[in-house]
Design a protein around this nucleic acid. Sequence first.
DNA 1: GTCTATAAATAGATAGAC
DNA 2: GTCTATCTATTTATAGAC
Lengths: 209, 209
Amino acid sequence: MTQTKRGPYKNGIVRRRQILDKAVEVFGTYGYLAGSLRQIAAEVGVTPAALARHFDSKEDLLVEVLRYWENDNAHRTAGAEPTGVAALRDLTDLMEYHLRHRGFLQLFLTLGVEATNPDHPARQFIVERYASTREGFAKRIQDAIDAGELMPLPPEQVQSEARLLIAALDGFELQWLLDPDFDLVSEVDRFIEATIRRLEGTPRLPVDK
Amino acid sequence: MTQTKRGPYKNGIVRRRQILDKAVEVFGTYGYLAGSLRQIAAEVGVTPAALARHFDSKEDLLVEVLRYWENDNAHRTAGAEPTGVAALRDLTDLMEYHLRHRGFLQLFLTLGVEATNPDHPARQFIVERYASTREGFAKRIQDAIDAGELMPLPPEQVQSEARLLIAALDGFELQWLLDPDFDLVSEVDRFIEATIRRLEGTPRLPVDK
DNA sequence: GTCTATAAATAGATAGAC
DNA sequence: GTCTATCTATTTATAGAC
């Protein structure tokens, strides 16, 4: 049981992670379709054949890349999820995380648009990811409602608000990727605060159409 | 001056437009990098060599495609731009236009993300397009403010609202491309109306932090 | 204006030496 | 575990016949 010295495997694991990290970068920059294994291999400093030892095919590499980052939040927080409107304000922290992991953000936005094509190998993954993110956001909003921090809304409208949150975040992130000077965090912060005020149920004059 | 019978040019012009239309579809579906001239040629029903007669290179074709659709609104409206908050509500019509021109929408969203890469041939075009769209939206909001339909806002906040409009629209459109059952028009409509109510300046209880 | 043919580069994947 | 070498397919682009 000399678990301290199982040397041979170690290099393989390190190399595998190097490849995964570079794949995030290349697929994120050029997309999965136009990104090439050759470029990933070259930038890692190995030949394409070396990649084949670690991943069966290009598509297999994509799957492993997605699996690598699947647990979104595990990468970011060590548990301790906030609740209520604090959970919404926590989205600002998510943006700060994305600022520090541009490749990750770029990968998922790039794949999201690419997966618009029904034949894309990551389509199912992306669609399911959007669905689960939507459910997660809806739950945060519902929790805030249940805690009395936001005014009650019918379920469909909670879903709509969750979809709006995702849309605005995706859109802001795209604007930041196109222009790094764009202040992503403060814009998202402003949006979140406006959303909270809008949903707080402060008295409003009724609007007649 | 027999302008009625300049036959030879006619076929060329028709073919050229066929190629442009198919290029929108292919570049929109696979992106510019991964989209191939061969596929465009094949789907038009000609050989790749025929494309070379009309366009100098792949990049030239992209430029011409972008130029072809540059006048966004000219394709949609025959003048008669609405003003004030009506101009904001007009965005719902823009969404309906996009629903009927999925390829166009897909092209600009795909290129927008792809142009995140500084070396992308369409980068400058996309960046400038976002800037001019932002200015257009900001002008609509400012007009509504000047007309007394929305409460006064400092210039930076007008810009922020314009950026939010673009972000939400992009994000909603992406969600629609990923799920055609998503009701794009009604979600955008709901968002626009909520935005107008939020900016109308109806009395609010002050929020103390 | 479109074709066939082909050049030159690059793609993903595999076989076998070390 | 990585290499060299090679296979097959696909890419953009060009040359020349019709």
